[in-house]
Design a protein around this nucleic acid. Structure first.
Lengths: 200, 200
DNA sequence: ATAACCATGTAACGAGTTACATGATTCC
DNA sequence: GGAATCATGTAACTCGTTACATGGTTAT
């Protein structure tokens, strides 16, 4: 259900083709909802059939023709009605947590590569969000922005993703620190599950 | 794939029936990976066929018979190998973010019920995580716990969920604050999308 | 007596991912 | 000459959710 409204909401930023929306989902909407191009094309077709968006073919010469979709009155109403509804509770869904849960099975050194890669991913995503944030603020402070911007929803949503990635990085740093500390003071009945790595 | 290893990891806490694991997933593992009983029963069957867990029937009189599964050598090895691998990057996947993105379409007062419900959910989950945390620490400080506990992975993972819910609450509070502030100083070209609610 | 607990599944559906398919055009 | 961009999909598959099915036992 959420993809449907994510597409409608993305069209608040102006009419777009499926191709445009796929890119829009990777920048302004990325943090809010993720979707692959195939999903977007399929959803656009469904939304048009439901009469919530209106499409018109744009003939191009040196480019393949495209269909531009825009949110119509019915679509806007549907979105408005949905926006005030209840959201099902979210949860962290992260393989890394499962790996962390079982982390005591191996030496800290063996976990490092995977967790560092994860950290790097989070850092890159955070950087991207900060870029988008700068694009919103355009030099203004947050307070100034809230007073002058036409819409603030996208910014408020972005902030959640921003914090999420910051906390991911902080958590990974902390986990590695704790595991390495424990690895240093080896021996004793503690760490009962740990075994030497295959390489050693 | 992750469910498979979440089940194996859950069995690190000792042998269990599908029914036991379903409950274990709602407490110690809940934060790490979520799964419904049906998924767990199916996964246990698959894991047994793969020879990664060993099941034995326990005949009971005043209760239906059950099958207790335990992690065997091959299962432990498979888990160890997986733990050091790469995790695919996670992202917040939350309907509330989509709603927030489109929040400017309606008055703040109309968003309140949905967001407050979300906030209450997060608060309850946080409380639960804090209970689990107390169960781990048993009065010890974190540092003490890290020095004395046999395993720390489950605790480290729990902490991520804990922070996530704290940040959810803080974010919702902030969003409502901003939206209400803007709602108070109404008028002007700002808030161009806002419309009166149906009731008003 | 009614609800909650123990115990295990099947079946249908919906959402999300991966792989495949096509083909011109502009940038390096 | 090769890669990236524009532009739109289909098909197969995996994962997750919802609904359904069964039936005895203990706690309130």
């Amino acid at each position: 259900m959420a993809l449907k409204y994510a597409v409608l909401a993305a069209l608040l930023d102006g009419e777009a083709s499926g191709y445009d929306l796929a890119k829009r989902f990777d920048v302004s909407v990325s943090n809010v909802w993720h979707a692959l191009p195939q999903q977007i094309y399929a959803e656009l077709a469904a939304l048009e059939k439901q009469g919530l968006i209106t499409g018109q073919v744009v003939v191009q010469e040196s480019r393949p023709n495209k269909r531009l979709f825009s949110l119509n009155e019915r679509g806007r109403d549907a979105l408005i009605e949905w926006v005030a509804g209840d959201s099902r509770p979210s949860a962290v869904k992260d393989e890394a947590l499962v790996r962390c849960f079982a982390a005591d099975l191996v030496e800290a050194s063996r976990l490092l590569p995977g967790f560092m890669a994860r950290r790097e991913h989070a850092r890159a995503k955070l950087e991207h969000y900060l870029d988008v944030q700068r694009g919103f603020l355009k030099g203004r402070t947050e307070e100034e922005y809230f007073r002058t911007a036409r819409r603030v929803g996208p910014y408020l949503a972005l902030k959640r993703g921003l914090i999420f990635e910051q906390e991911n990085i902080a958590w990974i740093d902390w986990v590695l620190e704790v595991l390495e500390q424990r690895g240093a003071g080896e021996g004793g009945e503690r760490n009962a599950h740990a075994r030497p790595g295959r390489a050693g």
